[in-house]
Design a protein around this nucleic acid. Structure first.
Lengths: 217, 217
DNA sequence: GACAGGATCTTAACGTCGTTATATCAGTTA
DNA sequence: TAACTGATATAACGACGTTAAGATCCTGTC
């Protein structure tokens, strides 16, 4: 392969990456504004002046496209958390993680909906190589904080399992967020989300703490 | 209108109600087994040997059909709770409501998914006249229990709002349930649902209680 | 008993979706 | 220049929710 051919090969590859990025960008915008179901392959193609078929040369199908967006969003969430990973006190850090999580959900509700409220088929694998790394995986960060809280004797002895603890804490906030996203009826007189979330975090950390521990906040 | 015509009129009405019930029954079964999206009007029609068009003479569209099922399921949930409404102590009753809620979700996961994890368009109204009645509306029962707990001085003074309290409690369990329904990946090492739910209820009630109150369970 | 009216159901179709088999067309390579 | 390769387009398939137009059958009236 000549030097020239190498250069053109690289150029072609760059072009390919470019249209791929354009597809993702258009898909992200449509998805964020209209949600998963309302976003169609035809619509994405229209937005960037391609035919629907062209998308299938860059992504196997709609799910693969959407899995790629998902991957990027999980990375974004992890980055959203790095600021909070510095606080030393585990319980205080858990509180901060909760508030950052809420902030992410409020800021990007459709991303949130897609990341945590959409069941993807089993064959779709959107996990990065960062799984388990607390600096790149938000769940791992939460588990780590729980483990430290347990190890430092801050937690009631009934709750020795950091994963279970992390799941309970996560679920409490996810429940508040997802119920509001899903059920916007007048049936339930919803209270202010951030206010409720702060109270929930307060209740949970208090309920977890070994009685006599300082920091009722 | 003669006596005979009245009788036949009633018979026709009964027949109509009968096919309507058949549609609902088939729809429920398909929905419970395959979920909302996978259940098609054509499929329901096939199951009861009608054409898809026939369904539209009984329900305006798929959403209306599904709203009717929803209405019935909310009634079922409320009935699921009447057994638990008898316990006198409010906090203990809240614990029992939580466990019954979990039991319902485990027993009818697709009903649950449909009732609490599916966003219906705003124009769909599936609320019965029972809204607000603690004996027929599960949310109202939970709010009532929270209000009684507050009134009896069992709750920390920060949490005076029974609706907010009810929403936090509900959300904590809903989060556990819905995350497991949605995210069945290997990314998170999920713990046993019932075990986690019992711990969550324990954490929440402890976190809510005015310190010094008896019944740490 | 014949006949109009209305309710119930069917036939056939429309427009949408995700997806794919086939064709086209450009740039690269030989 | 001719073959090759990869990106894009055309046209179509089958499935979906839904609907317009007709068929069928029972009812009540004359």
């Amino acid at each position: 392969m000549s030097a020239k051919s190498l250069a053109s090969f690289e150029r072609r590859e760059a072009e390919r990456a470019d249209t791929r990025a354009k597809i993702l960008e258009a898909a992200r915008e449509m998805f964020v504004q209209q949600g998963y179901e309302a976003t169609t392959m035809r619509g994405i193609a229209d937005a960037i002046a391609y035919t629907p078929t062209a998308l299938y040369h860059h992504f196997a199908n709609k799910q693969a496209l959407v899995a790629e967006l998902c991957r990027m969003d999980f990375d974004g969430l992890a980055r959203h958390f790095t600021a909070g990973s510095l606080i030393a006190d585990p319980l205080e850090r858990i509180r901060q993680i909760g508030l950052l999580y809420l902030q992410f959900a409020v800021q990007y509700p459709n991303h949130y909906k897609f990341m945590f409220m959409t069941a993807l088929p089993d064959n779709v694998d959107y996990h990065t190589e960062n799984a388990g790394n607390p600096e790149r995986d938000a769940y791992a960060l939460l588990v780590l904080s729980c483990r430290q809280a347990i190890d430092q004797g801050l937690v009631r002895p009934e709750f020795r399992d950091p994963d279970e603890l992390a799941q309970i804490l996560w679920a409490a906030l996810h429940g508040l967020i997802s119920l509001r996203i899903t059920k916007h009826d007048p049936w339930v007189p919803w209270r202010d989300l951030e206010h409720s979330a702060r109270h929930a975090i307060d209740i949970l950390t208090t309920g977890i703490m070994r009685s006599g521990t300082a920091g009722t906040r």
